Structures are given as C-alpha cells and as structure tokens.
Simulated assay, not measured.
Amino acid sequence: MFDINWRGLLLPLAYMAVLVGTFMTFSTVYRKRKALQSANLAPWFGPHLQRNIYLSLLHMEPQEGSEKAPLVPDSVIRAALLRRAVEDINRIIQIRTAKAACSSLLQRGSVGDDLWQRFQRAEKEMEDELRDVVMEANGLLPGWGQIIFQSANEIAANKMLRDRLDEIEAQTEHEKEWWEKRRGAIRSEFMKELEEADNKSVSATSHDEPVLVDNNTPSTPGSPSTTASQQGKN
C-alpha cells in the first residue's frame, strides 16, 4: 500500500477549490447580469392587445353593487381567442421574415448583441404564447387546439388579400386621377400647337398672295404697256 501525503496534496486541492469556486461565482454573476440586461431591453413587439382583451373577458370582475361577475357568452370568448390566434399568426410571420435578416446582420457585425437578444426573447415568448393558446382552446372546446391556428391562418390570409385589394383600388383611383390630369394637359398642349400652326399658315398665305392687275385701268404714257400697244398699231 502506498502512503498518501495528504499534506502535500492540500495546497493543490485548495487551489482547485478556489479556482472552481471563482469560476462558479463568475458564471452566476454573469448569468444574472445578462438576465438583467435582457429584462431591461425593449420588447420586440408592442403590447398584445388581443390577448389582453381575451384575458379581460375571461376574468371579468363584478361591477359595483353586484356580487357576481357579468356572464360573458362562450361565443364571445371563443371569438376573442380566435382574434388572439390571428395576431399570433401575424407575429410569427414577422419573426420568420426577420430571423434570416437579423442573423445575417449579426454575422457581418452590422448590429449588436442587444438586437439579437431581443429577437431571441421575442421568439421564446411566441413559443410560450402558442402553447398557451392551444391550452386555452382545448379548455374551451375539446380538440379545438389542433385546428385553431389553421382557422387563424385562413383569417389572416384573407385579411392580407383584402388589404392588398384595397391598396390596388386606391392606387387605381390615384392613377386614374393622374391620367385625367395628364390627358387634359396633353389636350391643352395639342390645341395650343394647332393654333400656332394655323397662325403660321395664315401668315404665310398673306405674304405669298399675287397682286391682281385691272385691265380697265388706263396706262400712263411712257409705261411699258403703252409703248407695246403703240408699236402694235404701227
């Protein structure tokens, strides 16, 4: 059996203990600091109005002078939850669209870590939000959680299509007004050019008009016509 010199190992063990303790303390402080910084960052999205409306309808408090809270119909609560799911669909689309751009800008160094932390926190919040909506839908109607986002996606797509059609119609009216103004300007310019051409034509005609000579006008003596007539008589 080998004798272990514990006194000789005491210093290395103490060094390892201090090193491990320092590392754990630094890691704990660093995580707390990062969590505090992340909590102080501005949220990626604004307030979730549809979620607040749903929760307000679900947990309505009794009015003054009444012991019971007003009864909200289940259809209204389901409609509020569906509107909440539609807003979640819109936010998911925004996150998927912005993820590639944020990742590329972060790799290039064009944006800081704060923006990426905000995005990651928004992505985590959306995962919790979707899970919560599914649980609420199954609580209101068994099995509804499996199809609620499919219905919400159809509603969101229909709204986007209607907004696009409204934008096209507004653009059509704008272009129609622009074309009416442009056509009026073209017509005015054409009429002005036509009047100028008529004026030039009238001016040229007046300068090139031949002089008519009256044969009955008596010729003066010594004129070429009188001399020619006298020579003919002779």
Rank of each mutant, 00 (worst) to 15 (best):
D3Y: 05
I4P: 03
G8H: 02
Y15I: 08
T25F: 07
R31H: 07
R31N: 15
K34F: 04
A35I: 05
Q37C: 06
Q37Y: 03
A42F: 03
P43T: 13
F45C: 11
G46S: 11
G46C: 13
P47T: 09
N52R: 14
E61R: 11
E64S: 10
E64D: 03
P70G: 15
L82S: 01
R83K: 02
D88R: 01
N90G: 02
N90M: 04
A98H: 11
A98M: 13
K99Y: 00
A100H: 07
R108E: 04
S110I: 12
G112R: 12
D113F: 02
E125N: 07
M126A: 06
E127F: 02
R131S: 12
V134C: 07
N138F: 01
L141H: 08
L141Q: 15
G145D: 02
I147H: 10
I148G: 09
A152V: 12
E154R: 15
A157T: 13
N158G: 11
L165M: 10
L165C: 12
Q171T: 10
T172L: 06
T172N: 12
E177V: 09
W178V: 14
K181C: 06
R187P: 02
L194V: 07
D198I: 12
V202R: 14
S203P: 03
S203L: 15
T205F: 08
H207M: 14
D208G: 05
V213S: 15
P221E: 05
T227Q: 12
Q231M: 06
